[in-house]
Design a protein around this nucleic acid. Structure first.
Length: 376
RNA sequence: UGGGGUGUCGCAUAGCAGCUAUUGCAGGAGACUGUAAAUCUCCCGUCUUCGGACAUCGUAGGUUCGAGUCCUACCACCCCAA
């Protein structure tokens, strides 16, 4: 993997860059659609490529390990072939499941024990095992195993948690360097900065992560219950330390406004389930604000979903029709909403890139933040 | 024209003397941030100073300390005979 910084204009920490991987280039800043179980829910590969213009998508180690299992993925020749996606893939390590499945797991120094949410069986995720599984998945970018503590955690817990994450990081990094890819493309390993909402812990974590010299670095443990302003502060603190010549990945963020604020603070890559999950639940993100498509007010609004978008679904379908599909419980409603939202997120990060390259990002951003935050 | 049955918030249901009338659907709104999520929460008779207040089980009477629940009449619908 290689990263070229193309623009880093004054007046903002925002930057534009270019990541090359064994599955092609990624222009940054970039939003990465989430495809946890080997599928971006409700969206197929041609829509991802042609309508959404996705450059890279996610998969999840925990979910793919449980089902279909690494045996099947190896037989398939890796996740790219299995799911029919020939562009880059990034896999999360299962670290987020340490957070989201907290009632079903137990942490030890050795690793994280999970009781499967599918059949209740017990599994141990160690920093080494998680690298091995991601080798079998064949993702272009793999993530370190970490503990993602809630945003409301106290300093004492955050301290202990960070120590564990750092120990796991050393082991995962060592194992990554001692193992080889199983398929014919290279893989990168991204360490993750934790430290909750505490500046001292974040600085320490960022310093130690930077020392590894990985091909890219991630910021985790944000947008998990803390106020947005605190999240922005933490991004700033961390990005002052993380190397400028490597991509920075902000994990799991966020709303369109969150994404613009993160880019403004020097973040290059982001992912989030919001465009797909909220889309399935009737919420549309647009450049003019947010719409709840189930609301009565759209029942007779026959204007296009997004008149300014050149995305197929935005031009062809009306708001009234989409509302009808949601009220009728039709699958198509969720597909249209997911495609629209992802296309919008990719448009937004693409537009940010254009304005960074043009040198007027600092003017464009505040106005766009205001626009996308409206409730329609 | 006889005989039998049934009427509960838009629809469907539970309740068959004990105080606050159940549940589902439909309808309205909100939530969702490295996906256990096509999920979850709230509202859904009227008024409210959000503490409550007042109504209400086809209609009208009656029995009873107390009636959606029992009795009588009427109305409506359904079924079976002609």
């Amino acid at each position: 993997m290689d990263f070229k910084l193309e623009a880093n204009p004054g007046g903002t920490a925002a930057r534009a860059g270019r990541i090359s991987t064994g599955h092609g280039e990624i222009l940054t800043p970039v939003f990465m659609p989430v495809g946890t179980v080997g599928a971006v829910k409700g969206v197929h590969a041609r829509e991802l490529r042609d309508d959404i213009k996705a450059q890279i998508i996610l998969g999840n180690t925990y979910h793919l390990y449980l089902r279909p299992g690494t045996g099947i993925l190896r037989k398939a020749g890796g996740l790219h072939k299995f799911e029919g996606w020939d562009r880059p893939i990034l896999t999360d390590s299962g670290g987020f499941q340490v957070f989201s499945l907290s009632e079903r797991r137990k942490l030890t120094e050795e690793g994280a024990w999970f009781r499967s949410h599918i059949d209740g069986s017990k599994h141990l995720f160690t920093p080494e095992r998680v690298v091995d599984i991601q080798r079998e998945i064949g993702s272009d970018i793999m993530m370190a195993l970490d503990e993602c503590p809630p945003g409301t955690s106290e300093w004492g817990y955050a301290r202990k948690s960070l120590d564990l994450t750092m120990k796991w990081l050393q082991r995962g990094w060592k194992h990554f360097n001692e193992t080889q890819p199983l398929y014919a493309h290279s893989q990168a390993f991204f360490p993750i900065v934790q430290g909750c909402t505490f500046t001292d812990l974040r600085r320490e974590a960022a310093t130690r992560v930077a020392e590894l010299g990985a091909e890219g670095n991630a910021i985790g443990g944000l947008a998990v219950g803390e106020p947005a302003e605190v999240m922005y502060d933490m991004i700033e603190v961390v990005n002052e330390i993380l190397p400028a010549d490597r991509p920075r990945y902000l994990m799991g963020v966020g709303t369109p406004a969150n994404i613009l604020e993160a880019i403004d603070r020097g973040v290059d890559m982001m992912d989030c389930v919001m465009p797909t999950r909220n889309g399935r639940n009737g919420m549309l993100f647009t450049r003019n604000g947010v719409m709840n498509m189930r609301n009565l007010k759209w029942a007779d609004d026959f204007s296009p979903i997004d008149p300014e978008s050149d995305c197929f679904v935005d031009q062809v379908y009306s708001k009234a029709y989409l509302r009808h599909l949601f009220i009728a419980g039709e699958l198509l409603a969720m597909q249209i909403a997911s495609i629209h939202n992802l296309a919008f997120y990719l448009w937004l990060t693409g537009e940010a890139r254009k304005h960074i390259l043009a040198g007027d990002f600092h003017i464009w951003k505040p106005q766009m933040v205001e626009q996308v935050s409206r409730r329609l």
